[in-house]
Nucleic acid binder design. Structure first.
Length: 510
RNA sequence: CGGGGAGUAGCUCAGCCCGGUAGAGCACACGCUUUGGGAGCGUGGGGCCGCAGGUUCGAAUCCUGUCUCCCCGACCA
């Protein structure tokens, strides 16, 4: 049995691509840097969407849709915003093609009066619309999310992690006060953290970005940072406090209760199909994709072992009540009745695609009132009695929960084990080579940050918020108590020796 | 955009140096035998050799340009 997946140890980057191919998640399209998301990959995105969309609605948001095209002039209204995105915009300049002998070319007569930008993000077009929607404090807050695609003309791309076009959701909210907007920013950060940990089983560190890593146009960018198996960090989601920057750029004001005129406060927040890359690099192994049950499009698959069509029919009839029972328990399951493939092939295929539980059942098991239940995460198998169907099916549901919890627990211990705390720059350089998070004291200046990045390729992933990071991180950071503010221990900067500065989280990242 | 590697059947690749009828394995279709970890045998279908020019009697092969992918850097969700 030849393994079609390069081992993680041999070549992690190749392993990542092999897993995507074998799980049939996505493939390259004819256009550089853009990908085709295949049904298996899209099903994961839909699963993420379902859960997140519910969480957004529960926190009072509603969905809307804004256009793909943005007038070029909009991009220039917020100075930092344009500076951040100008270098990676797709620009529509013409509206027509014309036939030439053997092909087509752009019709020069169709040149647009004002060029259109394919949205790299939607702050500008949304805040232009908000100007018309907001007059009074009674119109606030506006809590809107949109599911959309955006385009950023990236130089170097990787499937899911960085593609020129990607799918995401972007929340854009408008508030009457600074405090309310900051609360919203933090609330959505918490939603992301909950989603990452509870649904994706991917532990994350919450924190604030440094000025140089901040979203173009934000006052503060908060993020969730995850640690991949190969020791590189992944920015998994961001939540921005935009201050009044966009309200000022687009002249969005409201009348206060007292009759004054104020600019509106804003937030924006998003996660993207990059999360699929995160899920791959958090749980998967050399056999292929491993999916947490909460996210898996298919949670349980039943593989019949049969010698004849009669056998297959008998087994299918035997399993039918299980499928119904599992579905009524809210489990996504399927009976794999394909007769053109041998069981071994199906086992390998379902493993490559990350189905959390596989049940194998043949005549032998039917007669003995058992079924072979295999866990994808541990690759372990056990024989479970099936004579009491209720007990059996409840046991499977419980096993899904166990797998979900185990995946989070092992990802968390991996993250903790890969985290080091250092005091000197020498220790830092060595720790960074090992991969993982490195906690060190930094003097807060962009110069030092840049020097570290140039010399070690490590970036400051965030200034951790503290609180719920877990005892290990709180200990490292010297955090007292478990409040969000948490007071970190102060010490000299590892590079410049500036005294009494706070610790931050470093890593090499995707 | 700089450095390195690569585009030939759906996939992985050989053939290229040294120009002369386009190949293998896997996959696919059909038949028989199989079915508890990626089945065996037989038969068959499938290719503007990434694309565009050029050299040549003749180009997958030589030359030029171009596009795309992978790896390493600078930019980023």
């Amino acid at each position: 049995m030849a393994n079609r997946i390069t081992s993680q140890e041999t070549d992690y980057a190749q392993w990542y691509l092999d897993v995507i191919r074998e799980a049939k998640l996505a493939e390259h399209s004819p256009v550089r840097g853009s990908m085709i998301i295949r049904p298996n990959g899209y099903a994961i995105w839909e699963s993420m969407q379902t859960t997140l969309d519910h969480m957004f609605k529960e926190t009072g948001h509603e969905n809307a849709y804004f256009p793909l095209f943005i007038p070029k002039s909009f991009l220039s209204k917020e100075a930092e915003h344009v500076e951040g995105f100008a270098k990676e915009c797709a620009v529509v300049t013409h509206s027509r093609l014309r036939a030439t002998d053997g092909g087509v070319d752009v019709d020069p007569d169709s040149k647009l009066e004002e060029e259109l930008i394919v949205r790299p993000t939607s702050e500008t077009i949304i805040w232009d619309a908000y100007r018309g929607w907001i007059q009074s404090y009674r119109d606030l807050p506006i809590l809107i999310n949109q599911w959309a695609n955006v385009v950023r003309w990236e130089m170097r791309t990787r499937l899911f992690l960085r593609t020129m076009e990607f799918l995401w959701q972007e929340g854009h909210t408008a508030h009457a006060t600074r405090d309310e907007a900051i609360d919203e920013t933090l609330k959505m950060l918490e939603v992301y953290k909950t989603f990452a940990e509870q649904t994706m089983a991917m532990p994350v560190i919450t924190g604030v970005k440094t000025a140089s890593e901040r979203f173009a146009g934000a006052e503060d960018t908060y993020c969730i940072e995850a640690m991949m198996q190969d020791g590189k960090a992944l920015q998994a989601g961001t939540s921005h406090f935009l201050g009044q920057n966009f309200a000022k750029a687009f002249d969005v004001t409201y009348q206060t209760k007292e009759g004054g005129l104020e600019h509106v406060w804003a937030t924006s927040w998003g996660v993207s199909t990059r999360l699929i890359g995160g899920i791959i690099m958090t749980h998967s192994d050399d056999q292929g994709l491993v999916l947490p049950p909460a996210l898996a499009p298919l949670q349980i698959v039943i593989v019949p072992i049969f010698k004849s069509e009669e056998d297959l029919d008998a087994i299918e009839a035997h399993c039918k009540p299980w499928i119904e029972g599992l579905k009524s328990r809210g489990v996504r399951c399927r009976f794999d009745h394909r007769s053109q493939y041998k069981p071994g092939f199906k086992f390998a295929e379902h493993e490559a695609q990350g189905v959390p539980i596989r049940i194998a059942i043949g005549r032998r098991d039917m007669d003995g009132q058992v079924a072979e239940v295999a866990r994808r995460d541990t690759l372990s198998k056990e024989s479970m009695p099936t004579d009491d169907a209720t007990l059996f099916l409840d046991g499977l549901v419980a096993l899904l929960d166990t797998i979900q919890a185990d995946l989070l627990a092992s990802a968390r211990s991996r993250m903790i084990e890969s985290t080091r705390k250092v005091d000197t720059y020498e220790e830092f350089k060595e720790a960074i080579e090992h991969g993982g998070f490195v906690i060190a004291h930094w003097d807060g200046t962009a110069e030092t940050e840049k020097k570290i990045k140039e010399e070690t390729k490590a970036t400051i992933r965030c200034i951790p918020l503290g609180g719920d990071l877990g005892a290990h991180f709180n200990d490292y950071l010297g955090l007292q108590g478990s409040t969000q503010e948490g007071t970190p221990s102060l010490a000299p900067c590892m590079v410049t020796g500036t005294p009494e500065v706070r610790p931050v989280l470093f890593a090499r990242s995707y």
